[in-house]
């Protein structure tokens, strides 16, 4: 676990120094929300319509920005053969996966923290239960990142990785996106955590299963 944290710390130090991934992800997610707010400008005064639109818009922004970031996640390891250097260290391959999942999740959380206020302002929205929304976003993001990190490693050596990653990733994360959007909608309107317990359970189970699978099969995805 300690070595996973060292890998995550290395990734975060590099990322927050260069802001290569973070800047593009934030700009992209904000642009998505701005475009939707312009497109539905006439409807934004009607609360029931906004209640239906906002959760989907929020998760579209998260998923697309996240996919953009994930496509770069292992690309930095390919430069100078760093992934091979990492494979030469006496580190369990699963620890590399865990480290990468931690750093990708934290970068994604940073993007989400900056994106949610933009949605609140542009959609003139009032969030009832901030802690509940944060819980949904954390669980949904973890599910998305556990699968995304694995597929990012799998596609990094392909010539068309920017195309391959979303094609493989989006169908696989549908079981995360659907409960996450439903739970986000409910918590924004009603604000009660008991109303979203089934969606939360689904997200937790999905996160655990995919993290375990990713941890087990990661070794084979980075094999030469």
């Amino acid at each position: 676990m300690l070595r996973s944290l060292h890998i995550a710390a290395k990734d975060l130090r590099t990322e927050f120094r260069t802001k290569q991934m973070l800047n593009s992800m934030v700009i992209f997610s904000v642009q998505v929300i701005v475009i939707f707010s312009i497109s539905f400008g006439d409807l934004l005064g009607q609360k029931d319509i906004v209640d239906r639109l906002a959760p989907g818009v929020l998760w579209i922004a998260f998923i697309f920005a996240g996919t953009l970031g994930l496509s770069r996640s292992f690309a930095s390891e390919i430069e100078n053969g760093c992934l091979e250097g990492l494979k030469l260290c006496p580190v369990d391959r699963g620890a590399i996966y865990t480290g990468k999942t931690i750093s990708n999740s934290l970068i994604m959380f940073a993007v989400e923290i900056l994106t949610v206020p933009v949605l609140i302002v542009l959609f003139n929205y009032n969030i009832q239960n901030v802690a509940g929304l944060a819980l949904i976003i954390i669980l949904g993001t973890l599910g998305f990142i556990t699968v995304g990190t694995l597929l990012s490693a799998l596609t990094v050596n392909t010539r068309t990785r920017e195309i391959m990653l979303p094609i493989l990733l989006l169908p696989l994360v549908i079981p995360v996106i659907i409960p996450a959007i439903m739970a986000t909608g409910k918590i924004m309107v009603e604000g009660d955590i008991s109303d979203i317990s089934s969606e939360l359970r689904l997200l937790i189970v999905y996160d655990l299963i995919f993290f375990a699978v990713g941890h087990l099969i990661f070794e084979y995805t980075i094999q030469d």
């Binding site: 070595r3 290395k10 100078n80 053969g81 760093c82």
Partner: peptide, 23 residues
């Protein structure tokens, strides 16, 4: 190797520290 296995975004010291920690 002819590949350096070094992270361009880290300093020389940070690179060695990272790999040392990995060991």
């Amino acid at each position: 190797s002819h590949q350096t296995y070094l992270y361009d975004g880290l300093t020389a010291r940070e690179n060695l520290r990272f790999f040392g920690k990995m060991y």
